[in-house]
């Protein structure tokens, strides 16, 4: 009897652990392997637009595409540009999102759910439509320019659309909830008696915030930063709609290689490179963090 229940619970446990595993293998690892395979191939005209890896009983893998990426400075420039735009946008999100998250976390309990809903509400409209709506606001004869001229703050329309400013604005606007939510989660579960203890020990409110609230919310801030930074690096829609043709972000370059040049192998090599460049440092950081927490045990 006991043996049977332990087998059943063992099966249950395997099912619970196995489901996310299965998901990752089917929807992440397998596509990744396919893309990696394509990146080792050579483009051609036809369907599919790349040569098979297995030709005449021999493996026809080559690293030409990766070599090409290193050769042409376009890719490196686009990548650095993307990292810079994503990092700056994530930093702006952090600065804007922190007071919002703190405000919601410190609001009366009955207010928190509606306020959180307000943060998430924009997600109920299509992302594409919301980004596109910004073109109507930012263009030369758009709402913002009209208002500035009417108020006498600008003599002539300001070029806002098709600038890096618009791209930053679009990313910050679109990704702000991803910053607010993890920050809120870490701020909300902070023990308020810690702040009382700080105050009791002589810390004024501002010092108590800097020495207690802020350091304890750093994990939430890091999570929020990564949740904004990682998708922003590969962002395509926002620079396409709000940036100018010269805004070289890696997502746009990838799109061009894939759809305009129909060079699937090169696009695949680019995708793999970007993924590796983002995941590898994060994995290393996580490894360091684990090692440190083990050491302190």
């Amino acid at each position: 009897m006991r043996a049977r229940t332990s087998i059943a619970s063992g099966l249950g446990r395997r099912l619970v652990v196995g489901t996310p595993f299965f998901w990752l293998v089917v929807f992440f690892l397998a596509p990744f392997a396919i893309v990696f395979g394509i990146s080792l191939s050579r483009s051609r005209f036809g369907v599919p637009p790349y040569e098979p890896l297995w030709q005449n009983g021999a493996l026809a893998a080559r690293l030409d595409n990766y070599a090409f990426l290193l050769d042409d400075p376009l890719y490196l420039t686009a990548l650095l540009n993307s990292l810079e735009i994503a990092a700056l946008s994530a930093a702006i999100c952090l600065v804007l999102g922190y007071p919002i998250a703190l405000g919601v976390a410190r609001a009366p309990k009955s207010w928190r759910a509606p306020l959180l809903l307000a943060v998430i509400l924009p997600f109920w409209t299509s992302f594409l439509i919301r980004v596109y709506a910004w073109t109507g606001l930012l263009k030369k004869e758009g709402l913002i320019n009209d208002a500035l001229i009417w108020l006498g703050l600008a003599a002539e329309p300001i070029q806002m659309l098709q600038t890096d400013f618009a791209v930053h604005l679009g990313i910050v606007y679109s990704y702000l909830p991803f910053m607010v939510l993890p920050l809120y989660a870490s701020l909300e579960r902070q023990d308020m008696s810690l702040l009382e203890a700080a105050s009791d020990l002589g810390a004024r409110p501002w010092r108590a915030f800097l020495t207690i609230t802020l350091p304890l919310s750093l994990p939430g801030a890091l999570a929020g930063f990564l949740l904004v930074f990682i998708p922003a690096v590969g962002e395509f829609v926002i620079p396409e709609l709000l940036g100018d043709a010269g805004t070289a972000m890696i997502g746009k370059v990838l799109w061009t290689e894939f759809f305009n040049n129909r060079d699937w192998p090169l696009a695949a090599a680019l995708a793999i490179t970007v993924l590796t460049l983002i995941v590898a440092p994060l994995a290393w950081l996580e490894h360091l963090r684990l090692k440190r927490s083990e050491a302190s045990q």
Binding site: D191, S193, L194, E196, A197, A198, D200, L201, I212, P215, L216
Partner: peptide, 12 residues
């Protein structure tokens, strides 16, 4: 100064 019921020690 106060000794809190939950002690309220700063965990960091």
């Amino acid at each position: 100064n106060m000794v809190f019921q939950s002690y309220a020690l700063f965990p960091h």
